[in-house]
């Protein structure tokens, strides 16, 4: 039996929204410790890794590890019916052929319940090594969203370079070149406005802007985004969910042929 109650159901809705443009069908893996997702887009260019600790939930019971195979467009349709302040309850039997979702609102006294058929999804799992990255940058997630959105008018590819000067995003296309440089900035009283750059050696990598824009769908989950880069490796773009979990994206770089 799996049963989980999340007072702030909106967190789960935002997680679904942060993934649904990249993948259609996903397995949500339930264990005694957490709910987690690992999935790739159909082109195997990007990977999403989500974790939400059992401590995020008001009630969490998982007798046996199980995978809930979900079709995200359908899940998203159901979450459209969830109110902003609703509590979410998930329930599944060990056989896991259907998922019960409940949205409860104490103020209005409403309880909405849905039964969703689950699917058996064959997903390719990747072993992602725990790497020490050469550059780690923390910045406001809204700034990152604005930069990758704005640069799309210049071209399809974004060069991200981390040097002593700062973190530079560049795009080149038919109309010319655009560069946006972020310098380290810890002047603000609010820590979430800080830009911190931890660089062991300079790194420069190229990425598809289309994917970077997909990842910014996670912006509502976190005021801060963490970018990690090493030469010749996929970038990691992490949105921490308070102290309770994260949505991490890995994106393969574009390389010289």
């Amino acid at each position: 039996m799996f049963e989980a109650r999340l007072a702030n159901g909106n967190i789960f809705k935002m997680i679904v929204e942060s993934i649904r443009e990249l993948v259609v069908d996903v397995n949500i893996d339930c264990s005694t410790e957490e709910l987690s997702i690992q999935c790739m887009d159909s082109a195997h260019v990007a990977l999403v890794s989500m974790s939400l600790s059992q401590s995020a939930f008001d009630h969490f019971r998982c007798d046996r590890s199980l995978s809930l195979g979900l079709n995200l467009p359908n899940v998203s349709k159901i979450f459209k019916m969830m109110g902003r302040d609703d509590t979410m309850v998930l329930k599944a039997e060990d056989s896991a052929d259907k998922l019960m979702l409940m949205f409860e609102n104490d103020k209005s006294g409403t309880i909405a319940d849905f039964e969703l058929k689950l699917m058996a999804i064959e997903a390719e799992q990747l072993g992602v090594p725990d790497t020490a990255y050469k550059c780690s940058i923390s910045m406001p997630s809204s700034e990152f969203q604005r930069i990758v959105r704005d640069l799309q008018v210049m071209g399809d590819t974004c060069k991200i370079s981390c040097t002593k000067e700062g973190l530079k995003f560049s795009a080149t296309g038919q109309i010319g070149t655009g560069n946006i440089l972020m310098r380290q900035n810890v002047a603000s009283e609010k820590e979430e406005d800080h830009v911190t750059i931890d660089m062991e050696e300079p790194v420069e990598l190229n990425f598809a802007l289309r994917y970077l824009n997909f990842f910014t769908k996670a912006t509502p989950l976190s005021p801060t985004v963490i970018l990690k880069m090493s030469p010749g490796l996929p970038i990691v773009i992490e949105y921490p969910i308070e102290q309770l979990g994260h949505v991490k994206y890995y994106l393969a770089p574009k390389m010289e042929e």
């Binding site: 082109a43 195997h44 799992q125 072993g127 890995y250 393969a252 574009k254 390389m255 010289e256």
Partner: peptide, 14 residues
């Protein structure tokens, strides 16, 4: 020209 890599060149399949 730049070529888009896939994650299989970097990570192992489980």
């Amino acid at each position: 020209p730049l070529k888009q890599g896939t994650l299989f060149s970097f990570f192992n399949k489980h």
